[in-house]
Design a protein around this nucleic acid. Sequence first.
RNA 1: GGCGCUAUCGUCUAGGGGUUAGGACGGAAGAUUCUCAAUCUUCAAACCCGGGUUCGAUUCCCGGUAGCGCUACCA
Length: 493
Amino acid sequence: MPANPPFDAQSSAKPRVRFAPSPTGYLHVGGARTALFNWLFARHFDGTLVLRIEDTDLQRSTAEMVEGILRGLQWLGIHWDEGPYYQTKRMDLYRAAAQKLLEFGAAYYCFCGKEELEKRRAAATAEGRPPRYEGTCRGISREEALRRKNAGEPAALRFAIPEGGSTSFDDAVFQKVEFANSELEDFVLLRSDGNPTYHLSVVADDIDLRITHIIRGADHISNTPKQVLLYKALGAPLPVFAHVPLILGPDKTRLSKRHGATSVMAYREEGIVPEAFRNFLALLGWTPPEGSPEILNDTELIRLFGLDAISRSNAVFDRGKLDWFNTEYIRAYSAERLLPLIEEEWKRAGINPGPHDRGWLLSTIDLLKPRARSLKDFAGSFRAFFADNFEADPAAVEKFLKDANVRHLLIELAQRYAALPEFTEQETERVLREFAVEKNVKAGALINGARVALTGQGVAPSLFAVMCSLGKDRTVVRMKNVEQLMGAVSTAT
RNA sequence: GGCGCUAUCGUCUAGGGGUUAGGACGGAAGAUUCUCAAUCUUCAAACCCGGGUUCGAUUCCCGGUAGCGCUACCA
């Protein structure tokens, strides 16, 4: 039984959680997963998700990154209820907290210069000692410190870690975690320019925003005892901490650009549908109850989600599994829902599907979607359905069209189709099969060759469905032009 | 280096003192013959190592190893 019991849904208080990205970069996969877990938790308990932008690193934070992060969250369908709050606009809160800490005797001014500290750290490391701040300025009397400070001497404010003992907390994922206080250093609360550092601003904000559960990456575990000490020094009740394992690349090192796309938006560009990405992310480090399927919509995700089922070990980002989720979602989506997403792909690929009516577009998408792995396919390997300028896959040509006789027969067959009054699946198939018998060739050879002639691909839906989708005119023209495909191949290879 | 966390198929994971160690992705084979990236069927694939506790450890404990994290006047 953990000392911090899991949040009690029966209690009147609804949980308040937050996602607090730092706008020094785009929304990356790890951040998105953290945001997702917070959102799922808030929705599950009918609580509140607060968005807070941690932009106290003035040098590296930009408005563009904030914009990108918000867009990423929106794309994923993660909606926050409060905020965004900007830390740079809440400086008074942090300074007041710092002042309080100073008055309580939990903080003191430090006059050590940056270079001086670096030198000492380097020396300590060289001598094999832990490079911790030794509390040099801790002994300076309060009056003396105030005098020097008021005289204009630059000073940072440091937190005074209690001597001896240990600090522990009960993590909803990792259970009890304990650190000896001797391992913690007197960290900086206020820089000498008066701006707060991370620890101070997070804790002051989380107290002020009445955050009940802090769900964040496991890389913050080591920071937590310092923050626990801050809560105590400030006399505030502790929230429940829940640290979620990190996401790794295939080589089991922390996911980074080396492994490919780490930006959430890059996956949109790759033709991933947001629900698929969200579903995939949810299952990275969290497992639904036994017997649950893995394809889970937002309602199911929210209903099933719980902190207790979060894993304690890091998870490798498996691109292949993401693609599987994507195919499942594309297949399950209605053509109506797919169409606007596909139109974006066409725009990007410079495809204008022409004068087709909406009904044709929808039925063609339905025909194609069981074989789609990405939205990109609708502008890529399915291009021939929506544009007349397409390139043939050389491997498909090689496999099904290298026989000149097949090509000649296809051209001849095109004449028959041209004369066919009723261009339906049944009729086109009947004509082709009779033609095959007449010419004493296997129908399959004609079918496969025709598929390549019509779509440029060796893989496509049933040929006669393809013909009907394309219509008589385009079918006839493409079959007649089959030799041109050969030319394209020989020049391409 | 110090401190912390973690360790089940290639990957995500279930399980838990006695199990044929379960599922999903991926892989392999077969079926379908109108292609396959579709569909169906089948198969291969794991408890990090060493001690201890126990009648019995993959499961509990300790140690080792490995991986990851933190170790800033970054967040």
